[in-house]
Structures are given as C-alpha cells and as structure tokens.
C-alpha cells in the first residue's frame, strides 16, 4: 500500500469521458425527479381517495416499492417487464422508470405530510368565511404544503444522484458505469473510483448543506 505509485494521469486522461458520464447522471436524476414528482402526486391522490379500491391500489404500490430493494426493482423492470409485455426496453428507460417509481413512493409521503402539516383550523377559517373546499385547498392548503415539501423534494434529488449509480449494473452509461469501464482498461480502480466518489461527494454535499440551511430557515418562520 505504501509503495503504491499513484497514477492520477490515467484519470485526467479520461476526464472528458467521465464528465460525460456525470452529465448523464445529472440528466437522469433531473428527469427522474420530475417523473417521480408526478408519480408521487398520483400515488398521494390514490392514497387519499374517497374510493376504497383506489386507496388500496395507492397504498399497495407504496408498500411494495418501499419494502423491496431498489436494485431488485431495477433488475425487475429491465429484465422482467420486457418478458411480460414483449417489448425491449432500453437500459436508460428502464433505469428512469425504476428510479422514478421508487422515488415516487417516497415523494407521495412527502406530499401527504405536507398537506397534513397545515393545521385544520386554517381550513376551518376559510370554510367559515365562505371559501369553497377547492378555493380553500388552492389558496390556503397548497401554498403552505408546497413550502413544506420543497426541501424534502430537493433531498430526493440528492438521493437520486446517488441511486442513479445503480444504472451501472444494467450498463447505463452514467459516471459510475464509465468508471467501471475505465478501470477495466487502465487497471487503476483506486484512482478511478476514488475520483468518482469525490465527484459525487462534491455535488451532493453542498446540496445537502443548502437544504439543511433552507429547512432551518423554514422552521424559524
């Protein structure tokens, strides 16, 4: 270990290749976040539905997704969905579907707690003043709930950046996959994976700190 000759030049030499992977990672994370926000809203609406059957569907999706490993889900989407539906799914599409579904099940909880964080009295005040339930939701509940859900949504984005590395397993060409490919040709896993870990860290850490700051400010209000 002490005699190890670092060869960082093997990493710098492939800097553009790795950064291309990072770009892919960020694009995947962003697209997935948007889809997960929409999916989360659908699951949350199902959960809170008046109809028992819809509630049951929403709750079942959430429970299944939250209680199975994300990696198994990705493999399932990539390998099993094509068998069931007889269509070939691109690895990238499979990754985005799998991640979006996974995050959606958590984001639905974020929405729900956001809505429930608005005190009942605020809605009663609206009701007594004659606002309709829809007006009350749009004007009183939603603006407050959104403010509460933004920091957790941002945290979900950070999580997605990390989880998207699982795409490497189904050979999506994001930064981790490219690192695997690089280390297989330069035989320098230490430099390669250390560099990649550092890249992840310096993207996720500032974001996480910013979110913590943001949450503290919201709580102080």
């Amino acid at each position: 270990m002490f005699k190890y000759q670092f060869r960082w030049d093997t990493v710098w030499g492939s800097f553009d290749f790795l950064m291309g992977g990072l770009q892919m990672t960020l694009i995947i994370s962003a697209i997935t976040l948007v889809l997960a926000m929409i999916g989360g809203l659908i699951i949350a609406l199902l959960d809170m539905s008046r109809f028992r059957a819809l509630r049951w569907i929403g709750i079942s999706i959430g429970e299944v997704v939250r209680n199975t490993p994300i990696l198994v889900q990705l493999l399932w989407v990539y390998y099993v969905l094509p068998i069931v539906f007889g269509v070939r799914i691109e690895a990238l599409v499979a990754l985005i579907i799998g991640l979006a579904l996974y995050q959606a099940s958590f984001i639905s909880e974020v929405y729900r707690s956001g809505i429930q964080s608005v005190p009942k009295g605020h809605r009663e005040a609206a009701q007594v003043l004659g606002l309709t339930p829809l007006q009350s939701f749009n004007r009183i509940v939603l603006p407050q709930a959104i403010r509460m859900t933004l920091p957790p949504l941002a945290s979900n984005f950070v999580q997605l950046i990390k989880f998207s590395s699982l795409g490497a397993v189904i050979s999506v060409s994001e930064i981790t996959r490219r690192g695997m490919e690089l280390s297989a040709t330069n035989f320098r896993p230490l430099e390669t994976f250390t560099f990649i870990a550092v890249v992840y860290f310096f993207i996720c850490w500032p974001l996480a700190m910013a979110i913590r700051f943001w949450e503290r400010r919201l709580q102080a209000r």
């Binding site: 003043l129 004659g130 407050q144």
Partner: peptide
C-alpha cells in the same frame, strides 16, 4: 348564509403565508 356567520377562533387561525 355561510359568510353571514362569522367566527373568531381560540387560536386565531390566520393564514401564515
């Protein structure tokens, strides 16, 4: 008549946003 009956709550219930 909904809005002809006003109410003042113990905990004010002003909308904070």
């Amino acid at each position: 008549v909904r809005s002809e009956i006003g109410m003042v709550f113990q905990h004010f219930n002003l909308w904070p946003h």
